[in-house]
Each structure stands twice: as C-alpha cells, then as structure tokens.
Design a protein around this nucleic acid. Sequence first.
DNA 1: TTAAAAAATTGACCTATGGTAATAAAATTA
DNA 2: TAATTTTATTACCATAGGTCAATTTTTTAA
Lengths: 194, 194
Amino acid sequence: MDQNNSILSEIFKGISFPNNEIDLIESKLETINLKKGDTLLRADETVLYQYYVYKGCIRTYYIDKYGKEHTLQFAINDWWISDYTAFFSTEKAIMHIEVLQDAELYRISKKDMEILFTETTQLETFFRKKMEKAFASFQKRILSNLAASAKERYVSFRTTYPNIEQNVKNYHIASYLGITTESLSRIRKELTQD
Amino acid sequence: MDQNNSILSEIFKGISFPNNEIDLIESKLETINLKKGDTLLRADETVLYQYYVYKGCIRTYYIDKYGKEHTLQFAINDWWISDYTAFFSTEKAIMHIEVLQDAELYRISKKDMEILFTETTQLETFFRKKMEKAFASFQKRILSNLAASAKERYVSFRTTYPNIEQNVKNYHIASYLGITTESLSRIRKELTQD
DNA sequence: TTAAAAAATTGACCTATGGTAATAAAATTA
DNA sequence: TAATTTTATTACCATAGGTCAATTTTTTAA
C-alpha cells in the first residue's frame, strides 16, 4: 500500500519506509474503538500493548492504598499511551487506563515491536526518541512537583496542555496535580479574581 | 583490544561487540576524574555529554526562582547521568551536576553516540532499554510524590537506594524528597522512636 | 424537558509540612 | 587536636492544602 494513504504517515510522521515494510508494519497495527467510560487496562493485568491515540482522550491513573486515584498521564491525538513500567518489563500493570472521550486507537504488541525493530532500525530510533521526549516531560513534572505551588502547577498545566483541559473533569486535573478537587476549585476562584 | 580487559565489558554488560567495533567505541569514551565538590555542569550550559559513573557519587539538581535546590537524581557506580532534557534536545541545561564523592567517570558525546548508533544497532538498543528503565523509575517517583507522605517516601528511598544514603548529606535527601532538612530531621527522629 | 446523577463550589475547621532561629553535633582544616 | 565551618536537631509558630459536610451547578438519561 502507498504510505501516503496509510495511517503510518500519521503515526510515524517523518519516516518514509521502503514499500516492502509498509504492509508488514500495518499488519502489526490493530484498530480499536472505545466509548467514553470504557476501561482499556486494569491494575494486575499483563500489559501486552501500547496504544496510539488517533482520536479521543485517555488517562492512566494509579489507585493508592486508600483507594485514592492519581492521574499519571492524559493522552489525546498523536500520543502513545500504556502502563510503560509494566510494558517494558515483565511486571503486571499498576496503572488503570480509562477512556475519557470516545476514542479510536491503534495498538501494537510488545512482541511485534521487537520483530519490527529487527526489520527496520528507523522504527527503533523513532521509539527511542519518543521515549527520550517522554522522559524529559516526566523530568519536568518531577521538578514542577518539587518546586512549584499547586496554583503554579495548575497554571502551567493549562498553558502546556490547553487541548486536554477541555476533555477532562476538574477532578482528573486535580488528581494529576496532586491536590484535592476542593483545592483546585479554590485556586480556580482565585485565578478568576485576579 | 580484547573486550574482556576493557571498560566496555563493564559499561555495556551483556553486549558482546565484534572486535572491529571495540576500538571504535573505546575511542569515543573519555575518562574524567573529579573531586568532591567539583561541578560537572551548570544551568545554561550546552549539554554535549552523558556520563557513566564508574566510581564516586554525583547528583543533578535544579535551582528554582527562590534559589532553592531540588535534587533530581543521584548516581553511583554503573549509572549514567546528564541533564537529559537538554542532552536530548537543543536546549541549554536547566540542571546543575555536582560531585558528592570523588568520582571516576566516562563521558560520551551526543555526536559520537549518533555515529555509534549507525555502526551498531546493539548500542541503540542498549540505550533505548536504559531509557525505558529510567522512564519507569521517574514514573514511580511521580506516583510516589502524588500518593505517599514524606515519611513514606523517605523510608522507600532508604530501602530502594541504601548505597546512596551513605554517600550524601541529609539535606540532599530532603531536597530529593521535596521536604526541608528540618522535616527530614523530625521524620528521622520519629523513625528511631518506633 | 424534566428528573436524577455527577461534578463543582463553598465554608469551617484540621494537619502535615514549612519558616525562623537557636543550639548541638559532626566534619574539615589549620 | 584545636579551631572553624558545615550539617543536623529542636522548639515554636505559620501556612498551604486537606477533610468533611452542605449546597449549587452541570451533565446525563428517562
């Protein structure tokens, strides 16, 4: 198939694959359609896939010993998502993955990724660079949690992810920022008063 | 050179390189010896290298707008360290890197890494996997900051990194945990009373 | 389009951790 | 080993953000 007509040109933007590889890669990608509220993964499950978000909004969250939810990541169009700690190891999932807005995803299995990596170095480079970017954004998140107040983190979240805020509930954002929904509400009030 | 006598067998444990590659890789690694208190990198500098810690103890920290330090990572034997956000991009460093115990390091430049990646896929795979592990540990750190109390985080730090605690000051640990040195002191007192 | 459910806001009060300052202990260095 | 500097501890008070409970607003579904 011609790559120009293929989802590959969206997912792996910037890479042009030899024709013989395109069909192989496409054969490893599986489409999934999910509805708002659906669960993609639960803690304790085995994590076989990572997911490319073509449409919709997804979040990964952790449930602590008190039953409290903590949002690790949101994903919208053109993001990859999974419980990577489990996906990269042989551990079971610790995260839950939930659909916040009707979603169209492509999934690829760990096994197939390894096969593809041996076929085409470009793909391994692509995912290595994705990982570097994700690592960098986690680093910024850690520093922001250490150095910034709740209010500052919220303002920064809004400017960094304006497209996410529209898709999610305030209590999702609060659980991402590490504060309660009541605190977020007070912060929002202060901000409108400024 | 025979890989068995080479630092390569330590740094890239588990990979056996073809003989013709060993000299090439070694030619890209540079030894650096530093004293306690030395600075390896300052914010605003260009980050050309990543560093393999063969001996000693290193930390990366961020200085916020109030002048307060926040430790992002410690590194001891067999860890790689850099300001990765800058190293992987074209941005200037936001981190400082400081030597906490006399250190023997090997550094490799970004440019040389790219050259080596085109020579040998094994190296790219090695660094991709390193990055996956580092990403996973940052994920755990974020969740721990969201879900655990200062006391829990300290206890967890001690059990996860028993070899680091010996090498660093309490205020380094406090700034890693996101608390003041006074709070850490109170927590330590409580723990001895238990 | 209305009823029911879910989400957000607000107020009163509470708690974990921060700030300051003084002292003690430990580590350097002379 | 004595002197000096650095680090850690402690006490007292301050505050950001949490908890609980009531209410309002928004969303969803009948």
